Amino acid sequence: MTTFKLIINGKTLKGEITIEAVDAAEAEKIFKQYANDNGIDGEWTYDDATKTDTVTE
């Protein structure tokens, strides 16, 4: 398992969460579901060097 981080730069929700996932694709799926569940819809970027997804509304 690898640690992945999501940075949220939303209009109403800001912060970050960290998860353990098998790979980047699994982490992205989990993060996008989390964002959807919390009403966050924005531009996504991924930095492989830091294993960090960022969503900005």
Rank of each mutant, 00 (worst) to 15 (best):
K29L: 11
F4M: 01
T50L: 04
T52Y: 04
T3A: 07
A24N: 05
K5T: 12
D47R: 04
L6Q: 01
N38L: 15
K51N: 12
T56H: 07
N36F: 14
V55W: 07
V22K: 12
I7W: 04
T52H: 04
A21F: 14
T50F: 06
E26Y: 07
K51R: 11
T50Q: 06
N36C: 14
Q33Y: 04
G39R: 03
D41C: 14
A27P: 00
K32Q: 09
M1I: 10
G39K: 03
A25P: 02
F4Q: 11
I19V: 09
G39H: 07
T56K: 04
D48C: 14
G39Q: 04
L13C: 15
K32V: 03
T45I: 08
K51L: 08
G15Q: 13
F4R: 05
Y46C: 14
N36A: 14
M1Q: 05
T2P: 14
E20K: 10
K51H: 11
T3N: 03
D53N: 15
G10L: 14
A25G: 06
T52L: 03
K29D: 02
E28F: 14
A24Y: 15
A49W: 10
A27F: 07
T50Y: 07
K32W: 08
E26T: 09
T45Y: 12
E26L: 05
E26F: 05
N9V: 12
K32M: 09
I40D: 01
E20I: 14
Y46T: 04
N36P: 01
G42A: 05
D23V: 10
Y46M: 04
F4E: 12
E20Y: 14
I17C: 15
G15A: 15
M1E: 03
E26N: 03
E28M: 15
I7Q: 02
E28I: 13
Q33L: 07
T2A: 06
T18S: 06
G10C: 15
I7H: 03
L6Y: 12
I17G: 00
D48I: 12
K11R: 11
V22P: 07
E16P: 02
K5C: 15
K29C: 13
T18C: 15
A35T: 07
T56Q: 06
N38F: 14
V22L: 12
D48M: 09
L6K: 00
V55K: 04
L13S: 05
T50R: 05
M1L: 14
T3E: 10
F31W: 07
D23L: 05
T2E: 05
V22H: 11
I19Y: 02
T3S: 06
E43D: 09
N36K: 15
D23A: 02
K11L: 14
E20V: 15
I7P: 00
L13E: 04
I8G: 00
A21N: 02
E16V: 13
A35C: 15
T12E: 09
N9E: 04
K29H: 06
E57R: 02
D37T: 05
K11I: 14
F4Y: 11
A49E: 11
T12S: 08
K11D: 05
V55P: 04
D53K: 15
I8W: 14
N36I: 14
V22T: 09
M1S: 09
M1T: 12
I19C: 15
L13W: 15
D41P: 03
G15R: 12
T3R: 12
V22W: 13
D47L: 08
V22Y: 13
G42P: 05
I30M: 06
E20H: 11
T12A: 08
D23F: 06
D53Q: 15
G42I: 11
Y34S: 01
T45Q: 07
T56C: 10
A25W: 10
W44E: 01
T3H: 07
N9Q: 08
T3I: 12
F4C: 14
D23H: 04
T18E: 05
K14I: 12
T56A: 08
D53E: 15
M1Y: 10
A35R: 02
K5A: 01
Y46Q: 01
T54H: 06
E43M: 13
T18A: 03
E28Q: 13
D47A: 08
A27E: 00
Y46R: 07
T52A: 06
E20M: 14
V22I: 12
I30P: 00
G15S: 10
I40R: 01
E26Q: 11
K11V: 13
T18V: 10
T3V: 12
N38D: 02
D37P: 01
N9I: 13
A25Q: 12
D47I: 11
G15D: 07
E26C: 09
G15V: 15
G15Y: 15
K51P: 05
E57K: 04
E43I: 13
A25M: 11
D37I: 10
F4W: 09
T54R: 06
F31N: 00
F31C: 08
G39I: 03
A35Q: 03
Y34M: 08
K51Q: 11
T3K: 13
T54Q: 05
